[in-house]
Amino acid sequence: MNIFRLFGDLSHLLAIIILLLKIWKTRSCAGISGKSQILFAIVYTSRYLDLMTTYISAYNTFMKIVFVATSYATVFLMYMKFKATYDRNHDTFRIEFLIVPAVILALVINQEFTVLEVLWTFSIYLESVAILPQLFLVSKTGEAESITSHYLFALGSYRALYLLNWVYRYYAEDHYDLIAIVAGLVQTVLYCDFFYLYITKVLKGKKLQLPA
């Protein structure tokens, strides 16, 4: 464990808490993409199957359970409890166009052809594009509530911090995982446009308005 990964995980946890608070407090999931939340639930389910087989640390197990539980809770809140506030008309990204290529790529490019490894690789590839429906929704509605942009900033920062963690591990532990690094780069690059808007607008108290 290193400071980059710890802050990355905390930023990830913060993002999930911000989202749950936003939905619970405002009793609305307007502006949030349910499709991205479904993708995150798939990502954590396919990545954390090793919860059953491998114990790494209490922290690792605890965080995995939290991520899986909160991702399903968010999907439940969006599609059941606060279903009436779900923005179905704008949340139209075809997630099969993300899932199918991730499955194919995981079958072709992986570290070893076992069930756990291919599922883990699939989850890495899917996570790198899982935010696209959310960014697509924000671009379609042309704006985002500030709480939603804080959520996106925390979520984008988590993988950016993981990139620093991988640099650190390469030099300090002589360890690296190219699949995770390349996917992490793609994932972080997708946020660049948003990061720019967040820093130049939201932090100045303005609303996040995308140029129409």
Binding site: D9, I56, S57, N60, Q111, W120, Y162
Partner: peptide, 10 residues
């Protein structure tokens, strides 16, 4: 050992 190293991340 190698498994733990590469899969100890979330």
């Amino acid at each position: 050992e190698n498994y733990i190293k590469s899969k100890d991340e979330l």
